[in-house]
């Protein structure tokens, strides 16, 4: 009986202390982690998408609520006076997991400005070219949002990377998702942008 009690007590105390410690560390590092994610994942992609904006998209970011999840939107003021937004979507079914895609959209004419891959775990030299070699993602540039952003095999307008069809498909899925999200959230985004 004594052994039983000691087992229960030790395990309980141990897990409680562990839980408390982890909660403290999580709240302590939370802000910094968010900064790091912005700095290392989203900032380079945004910098490549918005090559000539007059504001700081990172500083002016805002959140849009959609079906229980929060979408982080980065607004940009284009040189010709127009506005644009960028946000990230996840394409399911990459070769090594989801592929994160930052999509920049011009809100005036509903055209894609550019897209860039943010996170991925694809094979170096094959799928990873989606991020390293811009020739694949540059196909999305200046496409209208009315266009079918799927691969050519699926009657879309995008050529798959040779040897990396699965990754290409995941990127296209992310783009299509962004397309749908944008159509749905456009009024709200425009309201917040001002």
């Amino acid at each position: 009986m004594r052994e039983m009690i000691s087992m229960v007590v030790v395990l309980t105390v141990l897990t409680a202390v562990s839980g408390g410690l982890l909660a403290a560390i999580k709240s302590g590092t939370e802000l910094r982690i968010e900064e790091q994610v912005l700095k290392f994942q989203k900032a380079p992609a945004i910098a490549q998408i918005f090559t000539d904006v007059s504001n700081d998209p990172l500083a002016e970011r805002f959140n849009v609520e959609t079906e229980g999840t929060t979408l982080q939107v980065f607004p940009g003021k284009l040189e010709d006076g127009g506005t644009a937004v960028a946000f990230e979507t996840k394409g399911k079914g990459g070769y090594g997991g989801d592929v994160g895609l930052m999509v920049g959209i011009n809100t005036d004419n509903d055209q894609i400005i550019a897209v860039r891959v943010t996170t991925h775990s694809e094979t170096p030299g094959l799928g990873a070219r989606a991020k390293d070699d811009p020739s694949f993602v540059s196909q999305f540039a200046d496409l209208s949002l009315e266009e079918n952003l799927d691969l050519k095999n699926n009657n879309g307008s995008i050529d798959a990377m040779s040897g990396a069809t699965i990754t290409s498909q995941a990127v296209c899925l992310a783009a299509i998702q962004a397309q749908e999200l944008y159509k749905k959230l456009k009024p709200e985004i425009l309201k917040q942008i001002q």
Partner: peptide, 27 residues
Amino acid sequence: KVRIACYIVIIATFVTIVEFLAQAFAY
């Protein structure tokens, strides 16, 4: 009798700490 469970709790705690720290300081 429960030593392995205790070790795992201890180890898992430190692993999670490492994960947070790596995320925060060596992203």
